[in-house]
Every structure is written in C-alpha cells, then in structure tokens.
Nucleic acid binder design. Sequence first.
DNA 1: TTGTACGCGTTATCAC
DNA 2: GTGATAACGCGTACAA
Lengths: 389, 389
Amino acid sequence: MITSFAPHAGAGTGDDVLNTSTAPGVRMSGSGGVRRIMPSIEVVAKEAGVSTATAGRALGGYGSVSAKSREAVLAAAERLGYRANSLARSMITGLTHTLGVLVPDIENPFFSRALRGIADTAHAKGWEVLLVNTDEDLTLERKALGVLAERRVDGMVVAPTDAADRDTLKAVIDAGIPVVLLDRRVPGLDADTVGIDNRAAARDATERLLKLGHRSIALLTGGDEHLRAKLARPGLRGVERIAGTTVGARTAGYRDALLEAGVEPRPELVSAEGFRREDAAEATTRLLALPEPPTAILALDSLLALGVLQALRRLGLRCPADVSLVSFDDADWAEAISPPLSVVAQPIYELGAEAGRLLLDRVQGSERRVTHRRLPTRFIERESARSLL
Amino acid sequence: MITSFAPHAGAGTGDDVLNTSTAPGVRMSGSGGVRRIMPSIEVVAKEAGVSTATAGRALGGYGSVSAKSREAVLAAAERLGYRANSLARSMITGLTHTLGVLVPDIENPFFSRALRGIADTAHAKGWEVLLVNTDEDLTLERKALGVLAERRVDGMVVAPTDAADRDTLKAVIDAGIPVVLLDRRVPGLDADTVGIDNRAAARDATERLLKLGHRSIALLTGGDEHLRAKLARPGLRGVERIAGTTVGARTAGYRDALLEAGVEPRPELVSAEGFRREDAAEATTRLLALPEPPTAILALDSLLALGVLQALRRLGLRCPADVSLVSFDDADWAEAISPPLSVVAQPIYELGAEAGRLLLDRVQGSERRVTHRRLPTRFIERESARSLL
DNA sequence: TTGTACGCGTTATCAC
DNA sequence: GTGATAACGCGTACAA
C-alpha cells in the first residue's frame, strides 16, 4: 500500500535529508506541519543497506535480485513512502509514456468523447494524457505544439483548426514525433488520420432531406469569415478547393446531393458565422428571414443544432412542422428532446480509440505506411425532419 | 519561428550526433526518411561557438550575454530546431509546471466545463494539465494519484469519488503536494475545496416545488448501492451521516425542505440507482409505477435529467403536464428543449477557474490557511415545473 | 561576459 | 547477485 508521497525538494534544499535526526526523509516545514521530502532511490538503498543499483533492480523489477535484498528494499521503500521520479526515468529511457492531445475545445461533446476514447486506450497500455486546448486559435495551436514537443511527449493526437498550420505540424513529424490527425485532415501532411467520410455523410443526409421534398435546404457549417470567403462563389464552386478539410468536404457533399437532384445550390443558404451556439441561433434567424427561407436545416454539429432549436423557439416556430432539422453527431440529448432529433451519428469514441491505437502503434516502433481510417457513420432517423410531399 | 522538432535519442544512440558528416543533428532513420535528432543545448553551443552555459543564458534569457553571443546562439538554435527539454529543466528547478487533474468522467459536461476553467487558468500562468479519468472507480483513483505523484505534478485538482480514499489523498497532501478538492468534499481532509452550498441549493429547489403544490417529490441522486444502504432508514434519517459529501448534502437539503413543510420524507422516492442516463430512465420508470407516484422529480445532474425525459417519452407522459422536473446544472440543451428545463445553475467554469487559482497560489508558495470556497448558485425558472394549485 | 564543473534521480553497463 | 560509475540535458555556483 502507498503510505506517503513527497515532492522533489527544490534545488539546493535536499542536503539535509540524510542528516535528519528523526526518521529519514522527514523535515519540518516552516509552519510547523510535518512534511515528507520525496526520498530518492539513494535514500531507500541506504535504508535497506544495499546499493542504489540493487535498489533500482528490486523496485523496477528488472535484472536479478536476491529475495532477501528485494524484501529489504521494498520494505524500506514502503516505510519511506518512496515514489519513483518518472522525470529521471524518462531522461534515461527516452520515453515519457505521455501522449499529447491537442483539441480546439474540450467542452465540445465531440472532443470530450473522443478524448475518452484516446485516454482509455492510452491508459490501458500505460500511457497518460497531456491535454491542450487551442480555442480554434492558430497562434495557440502553434505554441501548444511547441510545448508538447518540449515536454517530450511520445506522440500526439491532433485535431487541428481548419486553417491548420501545416508547417509546424510537419516540423513535429519530421522531428520524429508520431502524429495522428483526428477528425480533421491537413492536405499535404504525411500523418495517419482518423475520421469519417465527411463528403459521403453530408451527401447522404442532404439526399434524405431532398427525398422528403425539401428544395430549400440550409447548411450551418460553423465556419468563420475565412471559410465564408471561399464559399461566396455562385453555385458553391469554391468548395472544391477546400474539400480536404472537414467542413469543406461536408459542404461538397451537400453540394453534390443538390446538383444530382437538379437543385441549384444557393450560397445565401450556406452559413459560416461561427461555431458557437449563439452564432447558430443568429444565423438561423437570418436564414429564416430570407425572402425564400429554407424549409430544412442541416447543422454540422450538435452545438449548432442547439442554436437552431433555440432560434426556432424565439421565433415561435416549431420543429418539424415549420422547419425540419438534421444534425451531425448523436448528442446525448438528441433522443430525449421533443421532437427527437434525426442525426448523422459518428462513432466518436471509436474515432478517439482508433487514433490512440494508431499512435501507440507508432510510438512502439512500428514503421508501417501512413494509413487513413474512415469509420462508418450511421443515419439515425427520428422525428425532426418531416416530409413535404 | 519554429522550424523543426526532434525527440530525444534513445539511451545510447546520441553519441554520433556530433560526428555526423553532414549537418549536425541529422541522421537517417532505418527506412530512409530524414529524421532530426533533438539537439541538446550542447550541440547548439558547439554550433554557435560558445559554452553550454552561455548558450543556456542566451536561450533562457537569464544572466548576461553579449549581443553577439546571443545572436549566434539563437541563430544556431533556429537552424537546428532546438527545443528545450523540460524534463531536464524540471529536475533542476523542482517544478514541472504541470497540474494534475483527476475527474471521475471527463465526458460529463460538468467536468469538461470545469476542466476548461482549470486549464484556462493554468495556461494563463504557464502551467499545463495532465488529465486522469477514474470512472468513479476507487482503485483507479488510488492508482491515478500515485501516477500523478510520480510525474511530480506541482499540484492536483481532484474531484474524488463519493467514497473517496481519504488516506491516499492525505498521503499526497502530507507529502507536500498541494491539493484542491473540486465539487466534492472529503470529510477530515485538510485541503482547499471549491464548490457550492449543496444543502442550501437542494433545499431551495425542493422548496420551490413544494410552493407549487407538489407533495410527492422524487429525488434522483445518481448514487449507487453504497449510498442506497445509508438512505434506507425511515424519514431519511441516515442522511446526516453523509452530509459531508455532495450527494449527501443535497439529499439533506431535500429532506430539510420537506420536513419544514410538514411533509414526511418517503425513502422509496429517493433513488440511488447509478449515475448514467439509462440508470435514471429506469429509476424514473420505477418511480412512476409506484402506488403513489411522484408529481415532481428533482434530478441531481443534467445527465440524470436526460434519463427522466427519455423515460417520460417512452411512457407517453408529458412534462410538465404529467410530471414536473427540476435539475441541477444548466446544461447547454436545457433552454433549447421543449419545455425549457428549470434548473439549479452552478457556476461550473468559475468553480474550475477558482480551483485552479487556489492551487497555483499554493504551488507558488503561499502558506495561507485552508479555505473553502462556496460559489453562489442560481435557480433558473423555465417551464418544466408546473403549479398544482 | 564567459567557461568549467557539479548535481538533479534514474537506468544501463560494466566489472566483480 | 551485487556494486561502482557513466550517462540523460539542463540550471547554476564559482572561478576566470
């Protein structure tokens, strides 16, 4: 059983550890409380009457140690509350057993669920997770990659912003730190990726709305001005250039479906006004005020869908009677609300778990070729999309 | 600008770095791709033609360096893609600039939002976050605390399970690692805590339902058998013993309100059948099948509320016409659904941010007395609770 | 201003 | 089976 822990002494304060007149490793703090200083392996060895090498072998379970020595060491360690210093270990082994995880927003249910997948996988194999938020900010993302590199993480799972910094990511990979891209791909980057077939999924969802008789279908992308600029061309033709990104691919799929059904894409029905709920609410209000308002809305994530529902309430409109709604991601509330929301469900946890597996595979030395995993999506039909026929 | 990163060489492979005939720090990997080895400060110093000490001063911005030397070092570092090794630095300085965060379930919106608060605060002051999930499992929690200690985190924010392992936590604190308890308190533990006044908040919510004329009010605690055993006594008298925990305090507040209104608490209306959504759905179904079913339900978190709504739908019951519902936590969907959910809103982000602040305060050496922060809650009245009068 | 040398706590490599 | 001892990469006295 663990009986006590103690932090490393600050630089230059550890000398008296061995000279304490009471129990070794115990000193008084300034305010009078008892404070144990983290005993090093050297202290444990001394206490057990063996060398540090033997103590290390007994504690680490490698090499060969006599039963007698091992017992003495283990007892001493327990008595002193010894905890190995993983920093020192990492310096020598070259492994931190830490995976860096970089996401735009941990509060987004997509990423918190994916994180569970990553963390569970990592944890099962003895790795821990260092988490970094970027807030969709490119500068922060760049900095965060630097921090993770300095921490010598063994690998990274990265969900880059849509305007991802390819150069920095490339530098990380060239440096030999394995990277797996989650959800979002970065064109021209030589890294494993895990995600879904965004174009096909969006196309499928759009087709379903078309089959229900909808002809005015709005798309809530959650993108920003950056994206908006690229979408401004007639017939949404600009989208081909960004089909490598998640939002781009979904927009392309939406366009594919419309064109195949003989419906001309209307740029004013494609919104890119931010990824927050309130942004979506405002976008919805604007869309429904159009001279030719949409009869259905496709939202690219559950937070945006929430914004739509909020706007509908404010406007006194009902779903699906007045407006149909379909969303990406099967949020935990999607089935519980009235009406239950029809969604494109992604296997989010599995996405994260697979990213973790691919990464650990490389961390553990596999030199296999880069792979791109596309996990299947599932359309869950509930009651938020109604037929116009 | 960062041009390249590289991992530390494995033990015993770094010797040839200085002898490479092409650019220093560059080697070929087995499969032929270019792989940069993380150059140490020694390599940078050599490249710049100065000593490691001077290089260190130039890179770290301490001591005094001539402009000329600094320039040479910075240029060399840039050329070689130097990244400091924070492991080595931590060993010297005694600071990892890492905060350990231990939560039961990162997917739970409460904890993912609180984590944002912690992480933002930490990040703003130059700390990173090492995240550990415990799944409400006591054994995992114990292990996780050990891992964080071995990683030499500078401090921890811990949201312990309700049956928290006081001894292990105490060992951590005695070891001199600052700990801040989030959301859940551990009786008899000498640590800062951040949370709300659970008893008062639950009492207030219950009183509101009573004022609306409800007399049969069910409480969905999310607890398990462990808790159930303690709640089994007539009149809920067992609750006093566990009023130190979050669920216990809320249950006590619920009881307080009932007693004051002259309503005898009925143990069969207090459910402790698990914290997952499905658990809540089943509990709801059971409650509503009672001979004297509740007319209102108070759920202790938003996930449980979701389970209630799901059950109501399955049973063909409407909220609030058939059953009123009030929940803790203002989930992002609470306002968007029909009917909008009345809730006890906690300042979750602030809770996390405050925990981060208290922790960093101690990490940076403050010896102030232990404090217990109770942040105010806010009852948000919407439309899910109806009057029976 | 600069350089040398030591120490942080481990693991790994030798001899014995 | 055991014990010195050399790394790992950095900060920092101390001397020059």
